[in-house]
Design a binder for these strands. Structure first.
Length: 399
RNA sequence: GCUGGGAUGGCGGAGUGGUCAAACGUAUCAGACUGUAAAUCUGACGCCCUAACGGGCUACCUAGGUUCGAAUCCUAGUCCCAGCACCA
């Protein structure tokens, strides 16, 4: 299995028109131009994005011309993919540009924007916002309404009586036109982007008279199909602090181990198959999960930080040894009068309101130096070195 | 333009005069279990007072009104959606 095999199979969902055709081109030694686009509609990239980034990096390392496209033009239209509702509001180009700054910073943890064969950054607003009406009509003529509304999501929306805004409806045309504007040979994207990418294939064929390959990457999901990394409110961000990142990955279900190894690491297929066997035959998967987590933390930070995060996790969570753990600290305010425990928790930021604090106390979630405080009486006087723990994740150490 | 439908807690979504701080689901939080988990089970889930029983306040798009009492009825407004028509 050589580099090209890996490139074409590992972490790849589908290749259009087919794998053989692309392989032939790559084997010929030709360096291709490819891109993946990202609409900066938020500020945070999550671990799921890393799948695509890694693929870009592989192409980059093999000497191909990789373009990292910021969708400050397509973002204006609002990608309807996977959305069961039309967007309530659309973003301005300025907002998108602002978000893009942090996107690039985060993506830079995996792909290279500098050094040898750096990835080129482009903004599709540069050409999309300059399209004339005539251009748009010419693009539109390549598609039929039937093709567009065929998408499952639109069918579902129509059935449910939900709206399909014409603005988002145009999205595939814009994304498709990017391929024409940049004259790329290949577009990479998550499998949810298939429709949009195929629109680009059509346009490239009709407008440039050439073949554009499309490669989709699988969405990062555990074996039950549950998406990893972006469960509402609990995003595993690429720039999370190593300790947090480590803990978040560890708290994924065991089902996530194999998919994560496959899509996010360079561990060989044989090794993955081997560890899958071990787990299936009853071995405690924790060891492998720790290895996985270590690798990922290292990829996004450094070996040293990954080590530290791992040690921290071991002392804090596995041994429950809070005294030696690296906890957030708070200076004791000596002038402060003793107060009710519940209000104390609010003051130090461990509870959001007094009601919240009382609930936590009642639920035996508050520990002071390892001792559960069950009563909302006067709070103990904090002494240096005291540790308060609220629930499993919130700690505070007094200094 | 016409005709209908709608706006409820983080989200989805019940509720059509009192028993509604609002079913149910989901998310979140806590506890149990465990391998740190995940899954599962249990509980909590507006704010404030109380040791507790309990009480107060604020909330169902906005502003008024009817009523002893309104998420629920009326009036006006704002926003959203669907269908139809227009396209001479």
């Amino acid at each position: 299995m050589d580099n090209i095999d890996v490139l074409l199979t590992r972490g790849v969902d589908t290749i259009y028109p087919n794998r053989e055709a692309l392989e032939k081109v790559l084997r010929s030694g030709k360096k291709i131009t490819l891109y993946q686009g990202f609409d900066p509609t938020g500020t945070q990239l999550h671990i799921g994005h890393a799948v695509g980034f890694r693929k870009l990096r592989q192409f980059q390392n093999l000497g191909h011309h990789v373009i990292f496209l910021i969708g400050d033009g397509t973002g204006l239209a609002g990608d309807p993919s996977g959305k069961m509702k039309a967007r309530g509001r659309f973003m301005s180009r300025q907002e998108l540009r602002d978000n893009a700054v942090s996107y690039l910073k985060q993506a830079g943890k995996i792909v290279r924007f500098e050094g040898e064969n750096p990835i080129e950054i482009r903004y599709n607003g540069d050409w999309l916002t300059k399209l004339t009406l005539e251009d748009i009509l010419n693009i539109a003529q390549n598609f039929t309404v039937q093709q567009m509304i065929e998408r499952d999501m639109y069918q579902a929306r129509m059935k449910a009586g939900d709206s399909i805004n014409l603005r988002e409806f145009l999205y595939p045309l814009l994304q498709g036109y990017d391929s024409v504007a940049m004259k790329v040979d290949l577009e990479l994207g998550g499998s949810d982007q298939m429709f949009n990418m195929l629109a680009g294939r059509t346009l490239v064929k009709n407008m440039l008279g050439k073949e554009k390959f499309v490669m989709t990457t699988p969405l990062l999901a555990d074996s039950k199909g549950v998406k990893i990394g972006k469960t509402e409110g609990n995003v595993i961000g690429l720039t999370d602090a190593p300790n947090d990142f480590y803990a978040k990955i560890m708290s994924l279900g065991d089902d996530a181990i194999v998919p994560c190894f496959t899509l996010l690491t360079d561990v060989s297929n044989e090794d993955i198959a081997h560890l899958k066997n071990l787990i299936d035959s009853g071995e405690n998967p924790m060891k492998h999960k720790k290895k996985l987590t270590f690798e990922l933390t290292k990829m996004l930070n450094s070996e040293e930080e990954a080590k530290k995060a791992q040690e921290e996790f071991e002392t804090r969570s596995q041994k429950g040894d809070l005294a030696h753990a690296d906890l957030p600290t708070l200076k004791i305010d000596v002038s402060k009068k003793p107060e009710q425990l519940s209000s104390f928790l609010v003051t130090v930021g461990l509870a959001t309101s007094k009601s919240d604090a009382k609930r936590l106390i009642e639920q035996k979630a508050v520990e002071w130096n390892g001792e559960v405080l069950e009563k909302d009486s006067l709070s103990p006087k904090p002494a240096s070195g005291d540790i308060i723990k609220v629930g499993k994740k919130k700690y505070l150490k007094f200094v």
